[in-house]
């Protein structure tokens, strides 16, 4: 059985980047960017998440099968949110239904 062992230096490096991103996201939140505050906050959170998944959770070095399972969780979450919003974002487009 071959196990890929990530060197400690990589872990420390990823940790440092995560810390910088945490500081950045808090700092940026104090600047008013209108609707882009949400975008930026979620963008930074996503980068952090990808770093954790790829390095701490070793998805960089797992089989394709495992990657499919990782993707499945994300895709299904996207289905849940997208098709729910499909309702909420179109409320009030027609004369009958009221906006929420």
């Amino acid at each position: 059985m071959t196990v890929h062992i990530t060197p400690r230096r990589t872990y420390y490096l990823v940790f440092a980047v995560l810390m910088i991103l945490t500081a950045t996201t808090t700092g940026v939140a104090f600047i008013d960017m209108g609707p882009f505050n949400v975008v930026v906050a979620l963008f930074i959170a996503s980068i952090k998440a990808v770093l954790v998944v790829l390095f701490f959770m070793h998805v960089l070095h797992v089989t394709n099968l495992t990657k499919v399972f990782v993707a499945a969780g994300i895709v299904w979450l996207a289905i849940l949110i997208a098709l729910t919003l499909n309702d909420y974002l179109t409320r009030g487009w027609d004369p009958i239904s009221r906006p929420f």
Binding site: L83, N86, D87, T90, W93, S97
Partner: peptide
């Protein structure tokens, strides 16, 4: 959503 046609779900959805 086809379980919710008669609810307040938007007509477009």
């Amino acid at each position: 959503g086809h379980h919710m046609f008669t609810t307040r779900q938007s007509v477009y959805a």
